[in-house]
Every structure is written in C-alpha cells, then in structure tokens.
Design a binder for these strands. Structure first.
Lengths: 217, 217
DNA sequence: CGTACTTTTGAATCGCATCAAATCTGGTGG
DNA sequence: CCACCAGATTTGATGCGATTCAAAAGTACG
C-alpha cells in the first residue's frame, strides 16, 4: 500500500462519487491517498482501527476464509466506504484486500469522528449510508436463505437490478461466492435457466425474462 | 395493536434495556405504548413509515415470505429497536409481526429525527447501534454462506455465544429458519453432532464442545 | 381433554458440492 | 506477433447432504 502523492482532484471526484460528496473540507485536508496492487492486503483481522477507508477507484473487499480455504465475501466496495461499521470498534473483525489495483483515501478515525460530531450534513449522510448498508445486508441474508441456485439468481436480479436487468460488474466466479454457491453450480444454473427461457444473458447484462428485444413483427 | 394506557415505568425499563437507555426525555414524552397479540401484524410492506418501534417485551420479527410460503426471518428483536434502517425511508420493505404477545413503544418519526439532530449522546448511541447491526448482519451472511448445517451451527455458537456456549432463546424451528435450514435438517445435524461428541445440549444451552462439566476425577 | 404447534424420526428424491479436466481469455514476455 | 501462463469459464461424473413429504410422539395452553 504505497502513499500516493499526486493529490486527487476533489471536484472531479465529487461529481461521480456519492459517498465522497459527503466528506467535509476539514476531513479532506487530513486525508491520505494510497494505491494498492491487485490482491494486496489493506488490513487484517485484529489490526487496530486507525483510519476510515474510502475506495476511489478499483475494488476493495472484506473477506473471511472458511475452514476449507474458501473465500467468503462480506463486503464489496467499488467507489464508497469499506468497513464503515468498524469505525466504532477497536480492531477489525475481518480482512480487507484489493481485488484489483485500487486507490483509497484514508481518514484518521479521530478526525472522522470529530467531523461526524460537528458537521450535521455529513452526519445525516453517514447515517443514511449505514441504514442503506443495513437494508442491503438484509436483502443479502434473504437471498442466502433461498434454497435453490435459480431462486438466488432471480432474487439478485430483482433486488440489485432494475426492471429485471442487472449489469454484472464482477466475474461470475466471485458472483458465485456472493450468492453462496460454487462457481460450477452458478454456471449450471445460468445454463439451465437460459435453456428454460427464464433468463437471457448478454455478456455482462443479465435479464430475468426471456429476451424479447428486436422482435418487432 | 391496542393502545396501552398504563404508562411504562421508565426507570425500571432503563435498568434492563440498553436500547431504551438512549432515549432522551423529549422523545419519551411523545412515545405511545401498544401491546399486540401473538402473530399480530405490526406493519406491512409498503406501509408509510410513521414511527420508530422499540420492543419492550415479547418479540417482534421482520419477515418476508418466499414463493413457497416459507418464512424468511430478516430481523428478530427481543427488547430493542426493530427496522431501524427504515427510519430514513418512506415505506417499509418488509412485514413486521409479533412472534408472541408483545409491547412496543412507538415514536413519531419527525420527533425521532429531531432528537437525533439535537441530542449528541442519543445520536452517538444510535450510530453505534446501526454499526452493531451491520456487523451482526455481516456475521449472518458469513454463516449463511457456509454449505453444511453443522458448520452453520458451529458458527452460530461461536459468534452469538460466549466461550462455546449459546443460550437459545427461541424454538429450534425458528432457529432453523434463522440458519437458512429446514427444521428437519437442523434436528438431524444436532443429533449427528451430539453422537459425534462435537456438541452437547442441555435444554436451551448449546455447547460446541463435548460436555466435560461435573467430571472432577 | 383437546387442539395446535413443536420436536423427532423415516424414506425417497433432488440439487449442490466436489473432483477432474478441457477450453477460453487476457495479459506478459520473448 | 506469437508462445505462454494464470485465471476464468465450461462441461462431465459421482456422492453426499439437504429438501421434501409423511407421520408419530411430545408439549403447551385454554
């Protein structure tokens, strides 16, 4: 994780990142920027919490390994905070790794907490961000409670997509992990659903209905 | 859901309920108290969010039904807030029902939000409550990502219990739902683990190790 | 005492995990 | 540009474990 001295252009960042918009000036001036290689560890279980992490580009993940060495993805952040809920704990409960080359902003926790106290609008944004995270996690638990691969796929499209279409922004292998399936099970379920006509796939766009586009007669 | 005119004894409540301790006086005076029968609906999907709900006694659940009519438990609250994350949304995303006769405090959302703005200590408590909820949900997702019933049981004991022991405060049937299993699968897994000696059960206390108590020779 | 629900066991089936291996893909270096 | 490599994608075969359907026994409550 190497310090990155070329300062970010905040205005540009603000335009594209809803999470970053929140950050008050007092926090921006104490932010450190770093970039990581792919697969680089950002922090580990038990590490003391010194910073709040905001993903600017790339992708960071909270992960834990099950006893077979399988990777369980707890959170995936592409542009946004990661491990928000660790801010009021002493140490991390899981590992964070960069899934690809990633640039992050690091905010010292003390300054971050102070900003939350003092800046009402920042605080409101932070609270609604936590609330969104809660709802998202509930949806994920609901999904993982479904017993069949097809149901989880459909649920994913319904809750993460729009109008029965979802743009997949990750490999199918890691999608499988997110769905609590092996990648083989996911591939087969996708295949089966396409054969049945309940799903259509166009590279990274997944349609929950049979594809009826371009049929105009 | 019938209004309950006998006012709660706040001091007594405060002594036992960490969530209730937070509530500032300004909020207490506008709280309405209600009691429900078992299985009574508290709110439904799509209902506008008018109140924050605090469970005083009994048990409330956020649920959704899967397409087979199976009940998926999204949250279970026994003494504490329920559907905290809905406070900054217009309408509910799921149903809430009382799992048994339950008494609740209802706080009008406007007053609740105002109190969050004005009372710094209430706000801090609320934020850490949301953060705890996030961590709890992440643990649940991690658990549901495990592929075997035994692993989920062990994970539950490790993360919800203390020192390899967990006090089960619900029926096994609803525990099964929480673990994303059918109740039959849970019963059989418990039996198998006991036979293997990896688990000991004393009514509602579940031990993750072979029971070595009372052996002193 | 009767009713509703939970707990428990049984048997059959199905779907997913697992192990294996082939193909495809993107990226690296010669 | 091509050879090569690591990883993702895809398909196959097999076994196990969870689901499902069924039913009996236990338990709480009015």
């Amino acid at each position: 994780m190497t310090p990155d001295n070329s300062p970010l252009e905040w205005p540009k960042l603000v335009a594209s990142q809803t999470s970053a918009e929140l950050i008050p000036k007092t926090l921006r001036v104490v932010a450190k920027q770093v970039t990581t290689d792919s697969c680089e560890t950002i922090f580990r279980v038990g590490d003391p919490v010194h910073h709040a992490y905001l993903v600017i580009s790339g992708e960071a993940r909270l992960i834990r390994l099950d006893r077979n060495g399988g990777e369980i993805i707890l959170q995936r952040s592409r542009g946004g905070f990661i491990a928000e809920a660790s801010l009021d704990t002493r140490a991390y409960h899981c590992d964070a790794v960069a899934a690809k080359p990633t640039t992050l902003l690091l905010f010292p926790v003390a300054a971050f907490r102070a900003a939350l106290e003092e800046d009402a609008s920042f605080r409101r944004g932070w609270q609604s961000l936590l609330a969104r995270e809660v709802r998202k996690l509930r949806a994920q638990c609901e999904r993982l409670s479904l017993h069949s691969a097809a149901d989880r796929i459909t649920h994913y499209i319904e809750s993460e997509g729009r109008n029965g279409v979802v743009e997949l922004n990750q490999s199918r292998k890691s999608w499988a992990a997110e769905l609590g399936l092996t990648h083989e099970a996911l591939y087969r379920a996708l295949r089966r659903m396409q054969d049945e006509g309940t799903l259509h796939i166009d590279s990274n766009r997944i349609f929950s209905r049979p594809y009826a586009g371009d049929v105009d007669s």
